[in-house]
Structure formats: structure tokens, C-alpha cells
Design a protein around this nucleic acid. Structure first.
Lengths: 152, 152
DNA sequence: CGGAATTTAAAGCCTCGGCTACACTTTTGT
DNA sequence: ACAAAAGTGTAGCCGAGGCTTTAAATTCCG
């Protein structure tokens, strides 16, 4: 946070920098969101989320996964005891659920406007973290309309 | 790059990690793209892009902008001489043009599916960097259809 | 011309997300 | 029961992108 002193004198657009700041902030949550969702998936599928599996699925090495989990713990999203699996806290599970729901909506929206499903899945992975609440609701509304409308 | 050794034994989904890797790769270009576009804007508006202005618009401090410009130069996207403005190379200008076009399409798409325009602008800043070529073309096609179709 | 203000640069530090290498548990299997 | 294998943890390194502080250069005026 702590916006740097912005004189804004070079600005035709007034709040340009705010946009970028926001995009950067969103980015910093992205990784946490992905890990949270992944841990949730693994817990559902295999009963527990082991560091090795998390790492394998995320496409990173074990230490990287460990660090990410440490950050999740620091943020109160997960907890774990040494050599035991990783578990999401209430907050973490809620986050995972929200992320998953959002992901689905984004993929559906992409498909609805004509993006091939594999591409939609691929792109959604990057896109989803930058979809605001407002946009998400707009997507949902659009999907509703489309589904009933094009049912004809 | 250099995908870590992935045994994939924890995988129900085969190529899950690839998705994340791709998303991460896209992210690494994002900042460069933003700076390139910004420099292009400033050059157009004010004749040249000065570090101070770039920094102000991006919402970062001058040293940060300097570093970013250094990276752009390293990547062959810009050049600059001390105490002189920053200028994009051919490649840089091409990138900026592509980024700008993509940004516009993304914003238009968002608006087309019902996102309020201010939100669209805001979200597009984060989203655009993760829109693949395929998706971009799908967006364009959708916009074409919509424009002619809903003209009724 | 010379000094003040502005702009740029340089150095040093932080966090984050990667990595490798190495040490230590825990599990597993004979 | 114990040794090998597998899984985890920890330390240390790197690059990227932030920041602040300090120093230098340039520009602008009086």
C-alpha cells in the first residue's frame, strides 16, 4: 500500500496510477488463491493435502510449495504441523470456494462469447484473479440471459 | 522455464501444472507491457517520455521506473540516454500498439457483456495481460456479431 | 554566469516466488 | 527392528519489482 507521492502533473487521466496499483494488488493475492484452491481440491480428493502433491500440481518444487503454505499460514488461511498435511482454515476454505466459483463463471463466460473451452480453461487461470466483484456479477447476469435467451 | 521434474502421480488432471506455469509466464510480461504502452502514450502526448512522468503515471517511485526502463532496454524494447527521454524501439512500439489494441478489445468485450465502463477499465488493466491470441480473436468476433446483431 | 530546483542515477534493503542442495523425519519393506 | 525410500523442512541464491536515501547532472532563472 502507501501510495507514493503522486503529483499527477503529467496526468491527462487523473487516476491512472490507481489502476495499476490495483492490478498489482490483485496479483499479490493470485498465488495464494491458487494454492488455497489446490489444497482444497487435494483435501477433497485424497483426504489431505501433502506438500509434494501441492508442489506437483502447481508445477513447482517442494520448497516453493512450502513457502507458499507458510504464507497461507501467516495470512490465517491454512495451518499445518510439521510432516503432517496442510489444511485450510475456515477463511481458507471460504476463499477456495469463492475462487472456484469465480473460476467457473469466468470459464463459462469465455465459452459463452465463443472462446474454445481448452483455451478458456487456460486463460481463465490467469484472468480470474483480476475479475472484480462487479464484473463477476455482470458475467453471471450475462450467462443467465444467454442461457434463457438462446434457449430459443 | 525449465519445468521442474513433475511425476504427476498426484494428478487426476494430467497437465494441471502447465496451466499455472503459463499464467506465471504471462505475468512476467505484464509489467513490461504496461510500461511500453505508457511510454508510447507519453511520447505521443508530450513529445517524449521522461522517467518522472512514467513513474507518476504508473504510480511508482522514480527509481522503480528507472529499473523498469532498464529492463525494457535489456529486452530491446526501448532505449534512452542519460537525462534524455526514453524512446521505444520498433519492437517496443509494436508491442505497445498490440497492447493498446488488446486493451481496447478487452474493455469493449467487458462492456458488451454488461460490465459498467469504469469497472471495465479498471479490471481490463489486470485482465488484458492474460488474454491469449485465440481468446482475443474470439472477443473480436463476438463484438462484431453483437454490433451487427443487436443493431436490430 | 551561477545558484536553486528539478530530474536522473546509484546504492542498499524488502518481499515474493522461483530454484538447488542438504539435513532431517516418517514410512515402508524386508 | 532397521535400513532404504519417500516426504518435509531449512538455508541460501537469484531475479523482479517495490521503496528510501543519497549523490550527481541538467535545466531554469535571476
Amino acid at each position: 500500500m502507501t501510495e507514493p507521492t503522486q503529483t499527477d502533473d503529467a496526468g491527462t487521466t487523473p487516476a491512472t496510477s490507481a489502476r495499476f496499483s490495483q492490478a498489482r494488488a490483485a496479483q499479490s493475492m493470485a498465488v495464494l488463491e491458487d494454492y488455497a484452491e489446490m489444497i482444497d481440491d487435494l483435501t477433497a480428493e485424497m483426504g489431505e493435502a501433502r506438500i509434494t502433491d501441492i508442489a506437483a500440481r502447481m508445477g513447482v518444487t517442494h520448497p516453493t510449495a512450502t513457502k507458499a503454505v507458510a504464507r497461507l499460514k501467516r495470512e490465517g488461511l491454512a495451518n499445518s504441523r510439521p510432516y503432517r498435511g496442510v489444511f485450510l482454515t475456515e477463511a481458507g476454505a471460504a476463499l477456495a470456494a469463492r475462487v472456484r466459483a469465480r473460476h467457473r463463471v469466468v470459464v463459462d463466460l469465455l465459452v459463452a462469447v465463443g472462446v474454445p473451452s481448452e483455451t478458456a480453461e487456460l486463460d481463465a487461470e490467469g484472468l480470474e484473479h483480476h475479475v472484480s466483484e462487479v464484473t463477476l456479477r455482470a458475467f453471471e447476469a450475462f450467462l443467465d440471459e444467454t442461457r434463457s435467451g438462446s434457449a430459443a
